[in-house]
Structures are given as structure tokens and as C-alpha cells.
Amino acid sequence: MKIINAGKISAAVAQLCLKANYSLRSDVLAKIKSAYKNEADRKAKAALKAIVDNAEIARRDKLAICQDTGLPIVFAEIGQDVRIKGDLRKAIDKGIVKGYKQGSFRESIVCNPLKRDKSSHQGAVIHTEIVKGDKIKITVMPKGFGCENKSILKMFLPTAGIDEIKDFVIETVRNVGPDACPPYVVGVGIGGGADLACLMSKKALLRRITIYGLRITDYVSKIESDLLDDINKLKIGPMGLGGKATALAVNIETYPTHIAGLPVAVNLSCHALRSATKIL
């Protein structure tokens, strides 16, 4: 049994808020740089250059990568051999408010979704999971709402083929077009119930962006790689200016599901895909 103080969790969360909002994830930045290198279209190339410059300015000057510092989504994987001394929920909330205040980030959360009066930093979405071990793994993902607004869930028939699922993902990106800050990272959740499919589609965005080599052996990686190729054929491109880079990656997560159904959820991220993780 390991004891972890709630104060330690608060401090970690605050630090992760700053890190995620100031420093673009290294895998995302690397992929944007490689897209910049491969782009031939002048305007699309300039748009990718602006994204790279923006990331550098944000890190150097301690400015938020994007003014939409997001709805903070917190994933806490808690080892079953850990005892938390103090209030976990309060500790996370406190850490978010501290980090967001320190960074002068935007108060983008309305406490009452219907009245929509005064906005603040209070109201992070928290997902906890009990796992093996005696550690806590905390991830903060500031999710911008331009892209979150484009999320979609479809309950397919269990007899649907993989081509129908692929078409659904491609059509989703086609419909979103230039509106949610392409190039996108496309998170897809397949299986479970409606709730888990949506959660997996978001968690899929946390996975580091893979640059596929020549040897793709497993079934899901092959679908990811095919979908990425097909989406990039849409030629939406950065800022919708055309060019090769409409998506940087397609990440799929799967889970067992019911014989009567096949839930598929898509959660898009803009190019400013932000997340930071710490293990306590």
C-alpha cells in the first residue's frame, strides 16, 4: 500500500496544465514538420509554417498554443495499491484552477450549460480508472471545442462491413472540411457501448502519432494507415487551403461489443493536439 497526498496530485495537475498548453506534443510537432517538408503547394506550406512558428513562440514566450485552452479532460489511472490521502476530485479541480490561473489561460467553462452565465476554470471532465500497481498516472488534455463540436457517434448494424465504417470516418472528415483547424488527428472508438465508443475515440488521441513504416502486420494498424491515406486524398489541407496534409494520423481503439450492434465514434483533434502526462 502506497499513500499519495492529494496535494501532490494538485501540484502535478497544475504543472501538466501549463506543460500541455505551452508545449505542443513532440510527436505532433514532428509530424507537422514532416508534413511541411513534404508539402508542395505554396499556401498550404505557408500555413504549416505558421503552425510550427506558433508552437515555437508559445513555448518560448509562455503563451498558450491556442486561445481555446479547452475543456480540461483529466484521465487518472489509479493503481489499486494506492491510498489517496485527501479528496481526489477536489485535488484535481484545485490543480486545474491553479495551473490555468498561473498561465493566464482562458476561462472557457460555463458552470450551468443552459443558463450559460459567468465562465470560469471550474468543471474539468475527469475519467478515473482502477489499474494494477501502486502508482497514479495523470494525463491532462485541454480539448478545444472547435474540433470537439464535430464529434459523432453512429450505431452500425452488426452485419456492417469494414468498408462502411471506413466510409463513415472519411465522410465525417469531409463534412467537417476546413472548419476545425486541419490537419486533424482522427480518434476512432469501435465497440463497447455508446459511452465507451465515445470515450475510446477521445482516448485514441492520447496515443503517440505513429509514422507507419513498410511492415504493418496487425489488422487495426492497416485500417488506420488506409484511412489516413484516404483522408489525405480529400485535399482539404491546412486551413482548408488544399495540399497533402488533411490528417496527421488516424488512431483507432477497439473493445468487445454486443452481438446486436457495432458502435463507432469519431473524435477529431485540431492540429493543436495537446496533452501531458505524469506518473506519481
Binding site: 505558421a50 512558428d53 506558433n54 508552437a55 513562440i57 498554443i65 491556442c66 486561445q67 485540431c270
Partner: peptide
């Protein structure tokens, strides 16, 4: 259009 997602810039 302004450079989208480039608020720091």
C-alpha cells in the same frame, strides 16, 4: 481567414 490555431503567433 486568420492563421487558424496559431493564437500565440
Amino acid at each position: 481567414l486568420a492563421p487558424a490555431g496559431c493564437g500565440a503567433l
